[in-house]
């Protein structure tokens, strides 16, 4: 019963990148544990924000859900079907229902293809339109949907600004009429003024097409605006998941607290009173993470148990999960 409104259900997802040595005879020397045993789910129509610092495995998680990177272990259920078990051919068909918007709009558009060609790709691959004129109409419709003049159809990506390019990327993702879109830091490469436009566009499209988002970002204020729930990631592990407001006002995990304390406040009086938690040391290497809690090397609440046994995500009520011994 419960699984009915879960569009995406992720169970014990692991993505390890093997580190090999040698040219002909390769020896396995270890793994880069980019994503290490995380589980969460996303309901239909929901936006789940995924935050964390650079290199914590956010983007890898997003790509692993879409099977752009095949997970090492674990399951990704999309509408109850395990994507990790489908072969490439089946996956290609499934891609009609799930799309991705990449971080850097300068890198994610083929510089040799015009906008029309870029937008025809999903249409042709999934045979969405029957005739050429129908396809042209549809492309123009897509372009105006994301706020681009249809007259730009024959232009090339380098003729556009970052914000316009990101609109093209969004139009491409929308072309197949997906249900689920992974937004992989869709605004972090853009100007602040443009960021707001793109975020509003994403919000509008969500309510128009009942989209479900996994919104990956490192900017907490952006995530707060977009998300219904927020998941905090640190070094390949989820440390906390909670509803948007709950996390902002009652964060429990020390890492979430530190992360939240880094957000500047708009009100100067409040800003003066803001206490920053400055973490000491660096993020440990994901090739050799701490044995116990991943955060134990930098945590101010650390005790012996933290260093030995990794804490599990525990429900502390109202769908708020925290992985910490000291609450």
């Amino acid at each position: 019963m419960e699984s009915n409104n879960k569009l995406i259900d992720i169970k014990n997802l692991q993505v390890y990148f093997p580190i090999n040595e040698g040219i002909l005879i390769q020896r396995h020397r270890g793994d880069c544990k980019a994503v290490d045993d995380i589980s969460f789910n996303i309901s239909k129509g929901e936006t789940l924000g995924l935050v964390g610092e650079s290199g914590c495995g956010k983007s890898t998680t997003g790509r692993a859900i879409l099977q752009l990177i095949r997970p090492t272990a674990g399951h990704v259920y999309f509408k109850g079907e395990d994507l990790t078990k489908s072969n490439n051919k089946e996956l290609r068909k499934k891609r009609r229902e799930m799309q991705i918007v990449f971080q850097d709009p300068y890198a994610s558009l083929n510089p040799r293809a015009s906008i029309g060609e870029i937008l025809s790709e999903p249409i042709e691959v999934h045979k969405i339109c029957k005739s050429k004129s129908e396809k042209n109409e549809y492309i123009k419709e897509l372009m105006s949907m994301v706020g681009l003049a249809p007259g730009f159809i024959a232009r090339y990506p380098h003729e556009f600004s970052g914000g316009q390019r990101q609109r093209i990327v969004i139009a491409r993702a929308l072309a197949v009429k997906p249900e689920f879109i992974v937004c992989d830091e869709p605004v972090s490469a853009l100007d602040v003024s443009i960021q707001a436009q793109i975020i509003n566009l994403l919000c509008d499209l969500q309510s128009k097409f009942f989209l479900t988002y996994l919104f990956i970002a490192h900017d907490l204020s952006v995530v707060r605006h977009m998300s219904n729930r927020i998941a905090v990631m640190y070094l390949g592990k989820l440390v906390e998941i909670a509803d948007d407001e709950e996390l902002y006002h009652h964060a429990q995990h020390p890492y979430s607290l530190a992360l939240l304390s880094s957000v500047p406040l708009a009100n100067p009086k409040e800003e003066k009173l803001r206490k920053r938690i400055v973490l000491e040391g660096d993020v440990p290497s994901p090739t050799n993470p701490p044995i116990g809690c991943r955060f134990s090397t930098r945590c101010w609440r650390v005790t012996d148990i933290c260093r030995e046994v990794s804490p599990e995500l525990k429900d502390i009520g109202g769908g708020h999960f925290v992985a910490c011994y000291h609450l």
């Binding site: 290609r92 009609r96 850097d104 994610s108 083929n110 510089p111 293809a113 790709e121 999903p122």
Partner: peptide, 26 residues
């Protein structure tokens, strides 16, 4: 390794299409 090749994959293009339509022109 470019993101636009990955996005072609994400769109669901076949390997043949990616190689001939995305990589070759580049």
């Amino acid at each position: 390794k470019k993101e636009y090749v990955e996005s072609s994959r994400a769109v669901g293009s076949s390997t043949w299409r990616i190689v001939t339509r995305t990589i070759l022109p580049n």
